[in-house]
Design a protein around this nucleic acid. Sequence first.
DNA 1: TGCACCAGTCTTGTATACCAGACTGGTTCG
DNA 2: CGAACCAGTCTGGTATACAAGACTGGTGCA
Lengths: 226, 226
Amino acid sequence: MTNPDPNSIEDAVIAAILARRLKPGTRLGEAKLAEVYGVSRTRVREAMMRLETRGILQVSARRGWFIVEPSAQEARAAFEARRVIEAGILQSLARPSDAALRELRRHVEEERCAVLAGDAGARACLLGDFHIHLASAIGNPLLTEILRDLTARTTLVSMLYQSDLHAAESSEDHHRILALVEAGDVAGASRLMAEHIHRVEAGLDLSARPDPLAELRGLLAPAGTP
Amino acid sequence: MTNPDPNSIEDAVIAAILARRLKPGTRLGEAKLAEVYGVSRTRVREAMMRLETRGILQVSARRGWFIVEPSAQEARAAFEARRVIEAGILQSLARPSDAALRELRRHVEEERCAVLAGDAGARACLLGDFHIHLASAIGNPLLTEILRDLTARTTLVSMLYQSDLHAAESSEDHHRILALVEAGDVAGASRLMAEHIHRVEAGLDLSARPDPLAELRGLLAPAGTP
DNA sequence: TGCACCAGTCTTGTATACCAGACTGGTTCG
DNA sequence: CGAACCAGTCTGGTATACAAGACTGGTGCA
């Protein structure tokens, strides 16, 4: 249980965000994490700083480390970055290996199952993972890494701005994108991917300021909240 | 002189790389940097770790921090990433602001002057800066940041694999790309950018293993080096 | 009642002490 | 002569101690 792996903390945080188990604004105390992972504060601090440079955490002086709460502007930037990069990837995706295609096909099927089963947790996780798998399909670790962090960011955004998250539609989009890739229609796949990300972004309400008291409203103000 | 700014070290290292004043494989000792910047080793270590997660430095246990020496495979990945992202940026660069265009135009002129004047240092620096400026022209800090780190990487690659660095050609490419952008031909600009980066990559000899003794050969083995 | 103030506590910020591994140069033994 | 060995030194790795700021809750004064 006491994992000595130094970047296990980083990976755990990223994974938890992608699985929507860590919400934006969550505080991560150094002491607490040190205890949980059985390491000293020094190591925890390292991981926190690394995650900060990756744009996942923010530090508030002498208050703690917090999962970032992207502003509307930052949210748009994150989606734009994903659009640019993912469309670019598909466009230059000359010939993915058969193994990669099979893996993607399998993933899309898994998505479908989760959507049909109504398993919200697995579903959200898989829908984000598709994009990461797609990036890794071209075998460029740099792009995969960049896209993983970007996907974590947009996941936070969608948690913050209450997306409707039309899971079925998204899964369908993924299916069609993959079909175009398999057919060798890189331009079409690229265009559809851009549209897809646009759609997801459009499903958010970026005009609404995120409400730090959101989870309290239901508890304390039953009737006439103006 | 004793700059208290915490990320001044990071910026200084990146800037030095872009200006080709720090070569791949250079060792950066914690104690040395701490003395130079008048801070404690703790702060230096922070900066080093941040640069490591940005892919600029590498740590060799108990030996020191080194500027990365990308392998041929990593080099190709870096160029591919730049191609994907920069082509993508240009393609979705709907309408750059007039101010941004003026800035880019000015930059290209400056490049030309440096090329004509034969100022190798300024020239190399400016040629890399063009791409960063272009990224910042669309006003997306995320993409700018990503591209800065990627450009630092490819700069290291070109130092390592002795590019011929046809500065005049590159500057000319930049000029033409900007002209296409101004003409609103995003597809053309995008295509030309991809070609441009390809050309730069092709100017390298990625098959040659970098030689750690390169700088000694000229000194010690004047005649018959097999 | 309401506001300002203040001690106490909690959390990160920073420096430093000490440890362990890697390298160096010299020495000794075959 | 050469190779193995062995202190000595230098480096980063890690933990810890302590400082300083932010928050909390309570108290006293107007």
